[in-house]
Amino acid sequence: MNGWLAAACLLLVLGLGPALCGAVVGPVRSRLLAQNVATVLAALVLLLASPGYDRPAYLDTALVLAVLGPAGTLVYERLLAEDLPRGTPWPGLARGASWASVAVVPPVVVPVCFAVAPGRTTVKVLVIGALLVAGSAVCGRALAKAPRTAAGEGSGG
């Protein structure tokens, strides 16, 4: 049990636990924000598992999640466009959690960069970090900007 795994455990308990709670209660919009947060935190835990277990191969798992995770959230946001307008009961909390999940990426990515072998692996870790920040920010922004009034007229969605 080293520092990396301890940090991973912390992220699991303090991050993914509340994210799961957020996905279970509330209207669709806050659930989707919770799913977005869960994706970012899961990718960070996968990233921490690599130096934690001393296996560079686990970075590929984090890379795939960093690429597919925001895509999944955008798919939800696209196909649930009619369900989103019913707003969040705690809009501040939801948005704060969203930006916190973006803010926690650099403090995890930078130490991992130094822990892995220099060269291509460092670039891979940086790419994962950049994808997570960009993807999470885009999803959070898209969800925040989704129409807040119910779509009663116009096109079918």
Binding site: V64, V67, L68, A71, L74, A134, V138, R141, A142
Partner: peptide, 22 residues
Amino acid sequence: PAVVAPTVRGYALVSLPLTLLV
């Protein structure tokens, strides 16, 4: 046709070749 926010469109269009590469 669907209305897509420009940030989403930009991100998805950049992410497409990246995902393909991965």
